[in-house]
Structures are given as C-alpha cells and as structure tokens.
Design a binder for these strands. Structure first.
Lengths: 154, 154
DNA sequence: ACACCTTGGTTCGAATTTGAACAACCGGAG
DNA sequence: CTCCGGTTGTTCAAATTCGAACCAAGGTGT
C-alpha cells in the first residue's frame, strides 16, 4: 500500500458531497414515504419497478438486480408487500424454481396515491434545487458511474 | 394533490441515476471496507470524522449530525467501536450530560491502515470514472443539495 | 428558589438487511 | 442419458437501524 493517490480538493469535495447528499436525501425520502404512504423506500421502489414493466411482474432475481439489493432482502420485502396485498407471487411456467412478483390492483392504487407526494419530495430535495444544466450533468455523470459499477459486477 | 408536476426525461434520468449510483456505490464500499478492514462504512466514517478534528474528539450529538444518522444509531456504533478499542468515551467537563467520543491510538492505526484501500475503492467507483470537470460539477451540485437539506432540517 | 421547556444520550422494541447455508432445479458437455 | 457446475429463491442467525420513551441536567424567566 505504498503511497496511494489521495484525493485532491475537488475530488474530496465531490466525494464528501456524494456521501452527505446521499444520506440526507435517503433519510428525507424514507421519512416522507413512511409518513405519507406507510411504505419504506424499498417497498415503494418495488412497486415502481413492477409498475414500469409490461405485465407488472418480474422475476425475483431480476427485481433484486434492479433494486440493487440482496436476494434475501427482496424475499423479505416481497413477503411484506404480499401480506399487505400490494404484490402477489406467481410461479414461472418455464422454470419451476422461478417466482414472479406481480403488482396487484391494490398495489397500483397505493402507488398512484403515493406517487404525487413522493415526486414532490424528490423535487424539493434534489430536482428543483438544481438548474436544468446541472441536472443534465448529474444524470450523465451518475449514469456513467452506475454503468461502470454494473459492468464491474458482471 | 391535483395534477403534480411529474419529472421530465432529464429529471427522471437524474433521479434514477442518483438512486442507482447511490446504492451501487454504497454497496461496493461497504463490502470493500468490511473485507479489507473489518469496518462498516458507518464505523469508518466515525473514525474519519474524529480524526479530522483537532483533539480527535466530538460530542455525540455533533458527531451524529455530521454522520447524518440517528442518535441511537450512533450510540450503538460508538459502543461497538469502544469494545474494539478504536474509540473511547470521555465525559464533558462543562456539561455533565455531555459525552465525547475520542479516537484512540489504536483507532488511528486502524484508520491509517484502512484509508489507502478505501481511497482506491472510492476512486475506482466514482472519482476516476469522471472527468475533472464532471467532478467539479458534481461537487457543486451535491454541495448545494446538502446545504439546502441541512437548512430545511433546522 | 421555582416552574418549565429544551438538550444530550441511552435504552428499548420492532423492523430491516445481509451473507452464508440450503434444497431444488436447469442445461449443456461428454 | 447422466453428471455437474451454475441458478433460483428461501431460511436462518447476526448485525444494524430507527423512532419513541425516558431520565437527567441545562437554562430561562419570574
């Protein structure tokens, strides 16, 4: 570990900003969703992902990958959502092991009810704070970061 | 909740990128630190914050604020670090209720040993993936986000 | 001195997360 | 066909997180 390249001032600012903004935003949205919709951010994201795909259902592994969470964590949350009636498990015809998570009508209703407040909170915390140019740059940079990390994992 | 302002394409890309990059980076660093140094990111951050301040000690509340975590969460982690000998609790002379968390010599040693690998991981995941201009923009944007959220909380 | 409201930290219980271990299954090489 | 490495989803125990309740101690105004 000889003489690592430490971060210069800008790099450090970017990193600290990333860590801090990350935590603050996550915290804020977690609270907003819990209070206004009774959902955790993870649960909300599950509904969003399912709602965004034709058929409203995804394989567990696929869903876990999109959510960037562990398989076991997803199993737990899908079970919670299933108990609440917002999601249903459906077995996969072509693969006995496979399980589809599918958003239910009630899940759609809850999602539709929660979305406006959530979007407003996202705007308040992140979007409306930045200029369109900053947003475009942010989308580009973070998209690159995500792509690289995804590639590195596979 | 009449007719909320939904996110346009760029805004959505920025938000999705934020969520995804956030999770991917956090996940990656959590694993790196755990494997290479036996520390969680939270614990590492505690050591970093303490090491960055003259005297190497901070009040619990102050530390919790910097870490963007709950008071109870900090109590737990400081206790863990105390058991490991990396941090010590010290009472505050001017306020009986007050408690200082102070980094120990062993804490310094662990931090120094962990830092190079952590910095390398941060570079790999975020810093070296972006151009200097992107980094500067990122630092600026996320700094703004953090400042706004901090202000909103107080 | 006396209420009273705020602060600082810890404790407690409930919810969540993770990785490792597991059991069952798929699919291709030989 | 059969074997075997890789997949799929779940279960399990352990670690972590949070918020609410709590106790004790400041600090203020009267």
């Amino acid at each position: 570990m000889d003489d690592p390249r430490w971060l210069d001032e800008t790099e450090m600012a970017a990193w600290r900003g990333f860590v801090e903004a990350t935590n603050l935003v996550a915290r804020r949205l977690e609270r907003q969703l819990k209070e206004d919709a009774g959902l955790s951010h993870t649960q909300y994201e599950i509904l969003v992902q399912l709602s965004a795909v034709p058929g409203g259902s995804l394989r567990m592994t696929d869903l876990a990958d999109r959510l960037v969470t562990s398989k076991s964590g997803l199993t737990y949350q899908v079970t919670q959502l299933e108990k609440a009636g917002l999601v249903a498990r459906r077995s996969c015809p072509s693969d006995v092991r496979g399980v589809f998570a599918e958003i239910t009508d009630q899940g759609w209703a809850v999602l539709r009810a929660a979305a406006p407040g959530h979007v407003a909170a996202v705007r308040e915390a992140l979007i409306d704070v930045l200029t369109p140019a900053q947003l475009a740059a942010l989308a580009d940079s973070l998209g690159t970061v995500s792509d690289r990390l995804r590639a590195a994992d596979s």
